[in-house]
């Protein structure tokens, strides 16, 4: 069960990487993003999509890459620190996507479909990590 959760996090992280790469290339090339409405374009052109001057999808790409790496390493090593690393990244991820969704809804007043997909993805990952953590604690 625990390993299938880890596998699921790995796959979801790869999906997160795909989404982040697609959106990031649009940010960098300043090209339009295929979206269900024009929300992605409004969000892409907003200054709030560049916290500290860094495009939002870059944060996603780094976070998801680390999650991919750490979940892979967990298939090799059973070092508990890997789980805490994953937990830490997913906590940061959930806070980050919550903050950005709040900005989209109330400040930018537009929702980018891909950001919503990524936000849901990050919440599922967080939920799965918590589940794994609970199982490991119980085992202990």
């Amino acid at each position: 069960m625990k390993s299938s959760y880890n596998r699921l996090i790995f796959i979801l992280s790869l999906i997160g990487i795909l989404v982040a790469i697609y959106v990031l290339q649009s940010f960098i090339r300043q090209s339009s993003i295929v979206c269900v409405n024009n929300g992605c374009e409004i969000v892409r052109k907003s200054l709030y999509s560049y916290p500290l001057g860094i495009p939002v999808p870059a944060f996603g790409l780094i976070g998801y890459s680390l999650l991919t790496l750490f979940t892979f390493l967990r298939t090799i090593s059973s070092d508990r620190r890997l789980l805490y690393g994953i937990l830490g990244i997913s906590v940061f991820g959930v806070l980050f996507v919550s903050w950005f969704t709040f900005m989209e809804l109330f400040i930018i007043k537009a929702v980018c479909t891909w950001c919503a997909v990524s936000a849901i993805n990050m919440f599922i990952i967080f939920f799965l990590v918590v589940k794994i953590h609970q199982m490991e604690v119980r085992k202990k």
Partner: peptide, 25 residues
């Protein structure tokens, strides 16, 4: 180092993903 079947599965999935990214690019 001998990789477990789980590790191999992960590598295979990652390779497929990289392939998809390559086609996308």
């Amino acid at each position: 180092m001998k990789l477990s079947s789980e590790s191999k599965l992960f590598i295979a999935i990652a390779v497929i993903t990289v392939f998809i990214i390559g086609i996308g690019i």
